[in-house]
Amino acid sequence: MPRGHAALGVVVPLLALAVWQGVTLAGMVPPSMLPPPAEMVRTLAEMAGSGELAQAVGITAWRLAWGFVVGAAAGTVLGALCGASALARALLDPTVQALRSVPSLAWVPLFILWLGIFESSKTTLIAVGVFFPVYLNLMSGIAQVDRKLLEVGVVHGYSRLRRLIAIQLPAALPAYVVGLRSGLGLGWMFVSAAELLGASNGLGFVLDDGEQTGRPERVLVAILLFGLCGKTTDMALAAAGARLVRWQDNAMPVQGQRALQPA
C-alpha cells in the first residue's frame, strides 16, 4: 500500500473524534451519556497510573492466548484430519457443522455448570469461538488443493502421507492463515463475552463495571482498548502470515520482489 494511502486510514477516526468533541462541547449530549474525549483520556491516564490498565489488558490477553492456543490446536488437528481423509470427513464433519450452528453463547450455561465460573469455562468458550474458523479454513484448504499438484506427488512416488505433508499442507497455508485470523477476531469477541458474563477482572469487567457504576468513560476506554488490542494482534498475525505465504502470486506482490522478464 502506498504511504499516502496508509495515512488515509486515520482520517475517519480523526473526523469522528472532532465530531465527538464538538457534540460534547455544544452540550448536545449529556456527559453522563457521552463524556468528552478529554475525560476519556484522563480516565485512561488514571487507569494506567494505578496499574489497573496493565492488569486488565494483561488478564484479558492471557485468557485470549489460552483460548486461542487450545481452539487453534484443536481446529488444526481436526481440520487436517478431515481435509486429508474423506473417511474422517464423512464421519466427523456433519457433527462439527451441526455444532457450529449452535450459537456459541448458548454453551455458556453448560460450561459454567461443568467447569465452574472461573478460568476454565472462559478459556473453553474462547476456544470454541476460535476452533470453527480454523477448522473450516484448514479443512477446505487441504481438501481443495489442486489435483494437478497432487499428481506431481504421485508421479514422483510420494505416499499419501508424504503428499499430505509436502503438498497439501503447504498449499493450504493461505487458507489456514485466514482461518487463524478469523479465529483470533472471534477470540476477542468471545473473551469480552466471557468476561462480561462473569469476571472480577479483565477488560470485560471494566466494561461491566463502567455500566454498573454509571461511568461511560470507563466503558469507552474498555471499548477503545479492545479495538486497539484486536487490531494490533490481527496486524501481527497478518504480518507473520504474509511471510509464510509470500510465494502466493497475488495482485499485491511482497515488497522487494518483482517478476522477472523471460530469459
Binding site: K148, L149, E151, V152, V155, H156, G157, A166, I167, P170, A171, L173, V245, W247, Q248, D249
Partner: peptide, 19 residues
C-alpha cells in the same frame, strides 16, 4: 522399474508455488 524411474512432464509446469 520403480515409479521414481519414470519422469513425467505435464502440459502445465505444475511447480509447487511455495518452493
Amino acid at each position: 522399474l520403480r515409479r521414481e524411474d519414470i519422469g513425467y512432464v505435464f502440459q502445465e509446469p505444475r511447480l509447487m508455488p511455495w518452493l
